[in-house]
């Protein structure tokens, strides 16, 4: 009896989370794809044909004939979508680079900090992550507004005499993304720098490198795994970001996450938003697969 229970137990350990993820994570993508082939309709759900899982195979095949790629054609015809995709990728890429430029020195400084204060620094990086994303983005509105705190400050010290227009521009989006995702970049870089043997740098200096070349030729390449992980953790979600462009960006800033949201909530066009999501997923599939592989590799090395 117990042996049967044990065998069952080890099966269940795999089957339960597997089944859950299949049903709630993988299958929904197929539904999204299928609905992206449907037509909008004034009904609930607002698309046609509606699949009837109980209609039998012939019923499904019958309905399948009504599928079309019209929505995708529509996406290619309207330049708005194309621009939204392109500008999302560009904004995400620029923000990722900016995040890296800020995060690397911070992570490097943390890794070089005395051992006793490193846990505190680490906690300070993680802490904002526990506070609401929405709150952190919201906090920037008051700072970046034309009459906001940043302009008040700059004007009071006479750096500028005209308020800078930052809110509702791409700059506000960059700031928002860099700010919100900074911990995601700092943490992997810090962990790859921290476990690095510092005698390596000393060896390089001993062999005649200047501090800069020692950093560039030894330290940086060895932290590359952390850099790559950090960049992916920032880039991928940033491409589909909705809250930041919506709250900080201007009306002329196009980002695909916002487009999708509007298509869905304002226009109630489910098939088109499904098509938008499908293409977004296709764009992100490569970086996501790369991220998974890097993650799996890091885990097997950790073992």
């Amino acid at each position: 009896m117990t042996r049967v229970a044990s065998a069952l137990f080890s099966r269940l350990v795999i089957i339960i989370p597997y089944a859950w993820l299949l049903f709630f994570f993988l299958i929904p993508f197929f539904i999204v794809f299928r609905i992206s082939l449907s037509q909008t309709a004034v009904a609930m759900p607002p698309y046609t044909p509606v699949f009837d899982l109980f209609g039998g195979l012939s019923g499904i095949l019958e309905k399948a004939r009504e599928f079309s790629f019209d929505n995708y054609v529509w996406l290619t015809e309207d330049v708005l979508y194309f621009n939204a995709y392109v500008s999302s990728v560009i904004i995400a890429a620029v923000s990722t680079v900016l995040t890296l430029l800020i995060a690397y020195p911070v992570a490097y400084g943390m890794a070089k900090a005395p051992k006793t204060i490193r846990p505190t620094l680490l906690m300070l990086v993680i802490l904002p992550f526990w506070t609401s994303f929405l709150i952190r983005v919201y906090a920037w509105i008051a700072i970046l507004k034309p009459e906001g705190l940043l302009n008040q400050f700059l004007m009071s010290i006479n750096v500028i005499d005209q308020p800078l227009i930052i809110l509702n521009t791409n700059w506000a989006i960059y700031i928002g993304i860099v700010y919100s995702y900074l911990p995601f970049m700092v943490l992997p870089i810090y962990s790859s720098l921290e476990k690095m043997d510092h005698t390596l740098t000393e060896a390089a200096l001993d062999l005649g490198c200047t501090p800069f070349t020692a950093f560039w030729r030894v330290t940086f390449p060895l932290s590359l795994a952390g850099v790559v992980a950090g960049c992916l953790l920032v880039f991928i979600p940033a491409v589909g970001e909705f809250v930041i462009p919506d709250l900080l960006g201007g009306s002329e800033t196009l980002m695909i996450g916002k487009t999708l949201w509007n298509e869905f909530n304002a226009n109630r066009d489910w098939p088109v938003s499904s098509a938008v999501a499908t293409i977004l997923l296709l764009i992100l599939v490569l970086p996501i697969v790369y991220f998974q592989n890097a993650q799996a590799k890091a885990d097997s090395e950790g073992k």
């Binding site: 970001e241 996450g257 999501a277 977004l280 996501i288």
Partner: peptide, 9 residues
């Protein structure tokens, strides 16, 4: 994948 998947998707 869900760790990086855009929330809108």
């Amino acid at each position: 994948a869900p760790l990086v998947m855009p929330e809108v998707i």
